[in-house]
Each structure stands twice: as structure tokens, then as C-alpha cells.
Amino acid sequence: MAASLPLLPVLGAFDRAALLGGEAILKQAGVRDVRVHDARHTAATLLIEQGVHIRVVQEILGHTRVTTTERYTHVATLQMKDASDRMDSALWGSG
């Protein structure tokens, strides 16, 4: 019979430290205070930046509506520049 794994290893290092009273250790180490929820926004943005379709990101995050996923993603400056360059090329044939 396989031993069941405890819950704590499933949690991230930051969550584990917080649960075990390690906030002071993280602060002393200079680790920035972040929420697990922030990682969802970061993951969604990174996936979009890598060209993953927003509907796929929606499924990964488990959102019912794509509008919820849209709120999770943040448009990067490079993406805006690329869009601008493409519009320029489409309108004026440059590039």
C-alpha cells in the first residue's frame, strides 16, 4: 500500500513557508510577497505572449467565459509594437 503524500509538498514554497510561520524567513531573504493568485495572471499573460490562443488559456485556467480570461491577461509592450508594425505594413506596405 502506497503511503499518501501530505498536503504541504503540493503547495508552493511561499505558501508552505506562510503556513509554517516562515514569513520572517522569506522577508529576511528578500523574497517579494506575492499571492498564488498573482501567478495565474502571470501564467495567462506568458501563455498569450507565447502565442497560445486565448481559448486554450481559458481552458487551462478553468474559466467559463473568455471575458474572465481577458481580465487575467496583460498586453505587453512588445505585443503592442508588433500589432502597430503589422497595421503599418497592412496600410502602407512598409516593413
Rank of each mutant, 00 (worst) to 15 (best):
E59R: 14
A44C: 06
H37C: 03
L47H: 00
D15C: 12
V31P: 01
R32K: 15
D82G: 04
A29E: 03
D15P: 00
D82S: 12
I54C: 04
Q58D: 10
L91F: 08
T42L: 09
T42C: 10
G62Y: 02
M1F: 03
G21F: 08
R16D: 01
S94M: 11
E23F: 06
D88N: 11
E70N: 12
E23N: 14
R40K: 15
S94W: 06
W92S: 12
L5C: 03
T67F: 06
A13H: 08
I25Y: 08
T42K: 06
D82C: 05
T45G: 05
M87Y: 01
T42H: 01
H53F: 12
G12R: 10
T42S: 08
A3N: 03
H74K: 15
L5S: 01
D38E: 11
K27M: 09
L61D: 01
I25L: 13
M87C: 13
L61V: 03
Q50G: 04
R16W: 01
L47M: 15
E59F: 09
D38C: 08
T42Q: 02
F14R: 11
A44E: 02
H53Q: 13
M80Y: 03
E70W: 08
F14D: 06
R32Q: 14
A39D: 02
R86Q: 13
H53D: 14
Q50H: 12
L11K: 05
A83F: 04
A2W: 00
I25T: 08
F14I: 13
D33M: 12
A43K: 07
G12A: 13
S94E: 12
A90Q: 15
L19C: 13
D85S: 14
A29Q: 05
L8Q: 00
H74C: 05
G51N: 10
L46W: 02
S4G: 09
Q50D: 07
Q50R: 14
R65I: 02
W92D: 02
V36P: 00
I48N: 00
L26P: 00
E59C: 12
M80Q: 08
S84Y: 11
G12V: 02
Y72V: 07
M1P: 02
L91N: 00
D85L: 15
L5K: 06
K81P: 00
G93W: 08
A13M: 05
M1L: 08
H74Y: 09
L47G: 01
I54M: 09
T68F: 03
T69G: 06
M87Q: 04
R32N: 10
L26I: 05
R40L: 10
T67W: 04
M80A: 14
A3Q: 04
D88A: 14
I48C: 10
L5H: 01
A44P: 01
L26Q: 04
D85Y: 04
D15E: 15
S84T: 10
M87A: 14
R16H: 03
A39R: 00
E49K: 07
R86M: 11
A24T: 07
V34W: 04
V66I: 15
L20K: 06
A13K: 12
T73E: 09
L20W: 01
D82P: 00
G95L: 07
